[in-house]
Computed example of a mutant assay.
Amino acid sequence: MAVAVALTSRRLTARGGPSGAVLDIALWAVPFGIIGGRLYHVITHPTDYFFPGADLWKTLYVWEGGLAIFGAILFGSLGAYIACRRAGLRFLSFADALAPGMLLAQAFGRLGNYFNQELFGTPTTLPWGLQIDPTQPAFPTGLPEGTLFHPLFLYEILWNLLGVAIILLAEKHLNLRWGRALGLYLVIYGMGRTWFESFRLDPTEFELGGFKINMLIATLVAIAGILLIIVQSRRHPEPETDPMLPIRQGGSGTPADDVCVPSDASVPGAPGRGRQG
């Protein structure tokens, strides 16, 4: 989280955003993300929490593990959207600034999977195979102790770091504003996660139509990213000159999407500078 906040703050400020805004947004996004991550985990692992005699309070025991990234992204985005509206900042401008920092933060977060012996794949004889304690719930029945498995957490770390490099390099040559950097993030992460989930071992994996729910969600995420890039490229071929929302007419200072005030205009009663649409 700290890595994402630091990088995003630097990128957003360089684009004309207010200093300190990213930390304010994080105060909304992080709690929403934790709630969403836990909710998604519980829903997709129902047999871990809902059975005869189960203690339903354990659905709230985040400290025992179980936060899903897709739920965290969805609910965290909702919290970030609310915070952006309060700050008069375009959500997509914030999301574009966040995109590489998000992948970098996810790469750091995956290090925890090594210590917890989580997120590993099918058996392998490759020299970088991961040894898992046979007492782990995901350890396949019938395999001998000492079997090596694909270190999916490591694959995702490397994939995410590659994604960071792709976004940063692409921004030097392409117009990745107006939500297009966010779209590229969704494509990169969605594609990688779809592949990783195809050979991930999970003892309580929720399925839908015979497919792992995480594979389906990851595929939809990648498709959503492609659509976002296409739509925003058609809607906004022009450069983004200001990450701030335009100010509503009438001097209330309330941001609105449909009314633009020139950057050199003076708006009586409105806080801060005029904002360019």
Rank of each mutant, 00 (worst) to 15 (best):
S233E: 02
A6R: 08
A138I: 00
T141S: 14
D258M: 10
F75G: 01
G109Q: 02
L23K: 14
V259P: 10
W178H: 15
L148Q: 06
F153S: 10
I213N: 07
L216P: 00
R11G: 00
Q232R: 12
V259W: 15
G142D: 05
L176I: 07
N113K: 02
S252D: 14
P262K: 04
W63E: 15
I166G: 06
V187I: 12
C84A: 11
V261L: 06
I230K: 12
R38T: 02
W57M: 15
K172Y: 11
V231N: 13
M215Q: 13
P18N: 11
D242R: 04
L126F: 13
V221Y: 05
G274Q: 12
G129F: 00
G79C: 09
G65Y: 10
L227K: 03
F94W: 09
G37T: 07
V3F: 03
A80G: 02
A165Y: 09
M215I: 14
F70W: 15
P127D: 07
G250T: 11
L245M: 11
P134W: 05
L148N: 11
R110G: 05
Q249Y: 15
F32E: 10
E205K: 05
L154G: 12
G183H: 02
D133Y: 03
A138Q: 09
I73E: 12
I132F: 02
A83P: 01
I167D: 03
S93T: 08
E64P: 01
I35N: 06
L39R: 00
G88I: 08
F108V: 11
T194W: 15
P134K: 02
N214A: 06
L168T: 07
A72P: 08
I157S: 07
T125Q: 03
